Deep mutational scan, measured.
Amino acid sequence: GIDPFTGEAIAKFNFNGDTQVEMSFRKGERITLLRQVDENWYEGRIPGTSRQGIFPITYVDVIKRPL
């Protein structure tokens, strides 16, 4: 089901994660935001896939912030 505490964002740019914990994505992908890790990073996942990880806040347009 849908978790009411998650947020939502759209990727503004392609992001290629450097490490296992970073999640790569392509511009235009819809991302579920799980939490804000710190002032620069979100943790999120791509709905319908097993992809999950952290990524820079500046790479996405936030539609709804996670609670």
Rank of each mutant, 00 (worst) to 15 (best):
G1E: 14
I2Q: 14
D3K: 10
D3Q: 11
P4T: 12
P4S: 14
P4R: 11
T6F: 10
T6R: 08
T6W: 12
G7E: 08
G7Q: 09
G7T: 10
G7R: 08
G7N: 08
E8P: 04
E8T: 10
A9Q: 02
A9E: 01
A9H: 02
A9Y: 05
I10R: 06
I10K: 05
I10C: 07
A11P: 01
K12L: 11
K12Q: 06
F13S: 09
F13M: 14
F13W: 12
N14Y: 05
N14M: 06
N14I: 04
N16T: 12
G17A: 14
T19F: 07
T19M: 10
Q20P: 14
V21K: 13
E22T: 07
E22D: 06
E22L: 07
S24Y: 04
S24M: 04
S24L: 02
F25N: 01
F25C: 02
F25S: 01
R26H: 13
R26P: 02
K27D: 04
K27R: 10
K27E: 14
G28W: 04
E29Q: 06
E29T: 05
R30V: 11
I31T: 01
I31N: 00
I31M: 04
T32F: 07
T32N: 08
T32D: 08
T32S: 08
L33H: 05
L33G: 04
L34V: 10
L34Y: 06
L34I: 12
L34N: 04
L34C: 09
R35T: 10
R35L: 07
R35K: 10
R35W: 11
Q36F: 07
V37M: 08
D38V: 05
D38C: 15
D38Y: 09
E39S: 10
N40A: 10
N40L: 14
N40D: 13
N40F: 14
W41A: 04
W41K: 05
W41H: 11
Y42C: 07
G44Y: 01
R45N: 08
I46M: 05
I46H: 02
P47L: 10
G48E: 07
G48P: 06
T49P: 02
T49E: 06
S50V: 09
S50Q: 11
R51H: 04
R51F: 04
Q52W: 10
G53R: 00
I54T: 06
I54Y: 09
F55P: 01
F55R: 00
P56F: 02
I57P: 05
I57Y: 05
T58M: 14
T58I: 14
T58H: 12
Y59S: 09
V60I: 13
V60N: 00
D61K: 14
D61T: 12
D61N: 11
D61E: 14
V62N: 03
V62Q: 04
V62T: 08
V62I: 08
V62H: 04
I63T: 07
I63H: 05
I63R: 05
I63Y: 07
I63Q: 06
K64G: 04
K64F: 06
K64E: 11
K64A: 04
K64C: 15
K64W: 04
R65S: 15
R65N: 14
P66H: 09
L67S: 15
